[in-house]
Simulated scan of single mutants.
Amino acid sequence: MEPPRNIKEVQSLTERVAALNRFVSKATDKCLPFFKVLKKAQALANFIVEFTPNLGDLDEVNEDKKWVVYVDSSSKLHAGGIGVILKSPEGDKLKYTACLWYQITNNKVEYEALLKGLKLAKSLRAELIVVQGDSQLIMGQVNGICEAKEEWMKKYLSKVKRLIKKFKEASFHQVPKEENMEANALAKVASIEWSMDELDEVQYMPSIDLPEV
């Protein structure tokens, strides 16, 4: 019998042992030989305890496998820029910049940065991610703390949630601006017209108006 490999398997085995113990406990009132079964059940329980990793250790293993995704944006009069930094579990960084070559508001460009960060993380086959951005509103909406009232916000939020489902685990954190300076610097450069030759991508319309791929 293989030892449990994750929290769900630990919980499943624990429930099975508990059910077996309840059955054996009732059976021993009727028939003495069932005491032998009880001993076997206890042996199985001891096996689980011996070979089950500490849940805290499982959390530490998961932490070691998480990607950190930093997202930020910048908006000018006729264009916007997004900056994304993906940090691998080993500490390697991938930087990405894109110019949104159309008129766009601050909150819309923040959502574009978040969408791009999620898409890039998925393209790198990341399964566990921690997303950090300095927009309190956007992070609040994704976490269900703030309500998306405008129709365009609902569309962006819906698109984000569809992407989230593609990951095993995803958490979103609002951080102070000073803790997101590197992504912010990339976004500012991306919003400047003369830097377009140095960008990774130029986008000419909002993501919510593009067909699903």
Rank of each mutant, 00 (worst) to 15 (best):
P4S: 07
P4R: 02
P4M: 06
R5H: 09
I7W: 04
K8Q: 05
V10F: 15
Q11W: 00
S12D: 08
T14Q: 13
E15V: 08
R16Q: 11
R16I: 00
R16M: 08
A18T: 11
A19V: 09
R22L: 07
R22W: 04
R22I: 03
V24P: 00
V24D: 00
S25C: 02
D29K: 12
K30G: 12
C31G: 00
L32E: 13
L32V: 10
L38E: 02
L38H: 04
L38D: 01
L44H: 02
A45P: 01
A45W: 00
N46Y: 00
V49Q: 15
V49T: 07
E50A: 06
E50C: 05
F51D: 12
P53Y: 02
L55Y: 00
G56S: 09
D57C: 08
L58E: 04
L58H: 05
D64V: 01
K65N: 05
W67T: 07
V69H: 01
V69R: 02
Y70I: 09
V71L: 08
D72Y: 07
K76S: 10
K76G: 06
A79W: 04
I85V: 14
I85L: 09
S88F: 11
S88D: 03
D92I: 14
K95M: 14
Y96I: 10
T97V: 07
A98Y: 03
L100K: 10
Y102W: 09
Q103G: 06
Q103I: 00
Q103L: 04
T105Y: 10
N106Y: 01
N107P: 03
V109H: 02
E110C: 02
E110M: 04
E112C: 05
A113D: 05
A113M: 05
K116M: 15
G117S: 09
G117C: 10
K119A: 06
A121V: 14
A121D: 09
S123P: 01
L124G: 02
R125E: 14
A126N: 10
E127C: 04
V130M: 14
V131K: 08
Q132K: 13
Q132R: 12
D134N: 10
G140I: 12
G140T: 06
G140C: 08
N143A: 07
N143R: 12
G144N: 04
I145C: 02
I145A: 07
A148Q: 08
E150K: 10
E151P: 07
M153G: 09
Y156R: 08
Y156S: 04
V160A: 07
K161W: 13
L163G: 03
L163E: 07
K166I: 13
K166W: 05
K168S: 03
K168H: 03
E169S: 15
A170S: 11
H173S: 05
V175W: 14
P176H: 01
K177R: 15
E178Q: 15
M181Y: 09
M181A: 03
A185I: 06
A190R: 02
I192W: 02
I192R: 03
E193T: 14
W194V: 10
W194G: 11
W194A: 12
M196W: 12
E198P: 05
Q203F: 00
P206R: 09
S207M: 13
S207W: 10
S207D: 15
L210R: 15
P211H: 10
P211D: 11
P211W: 09
P211T: 08
E212F: 14
E212W: 12
E212L: 12
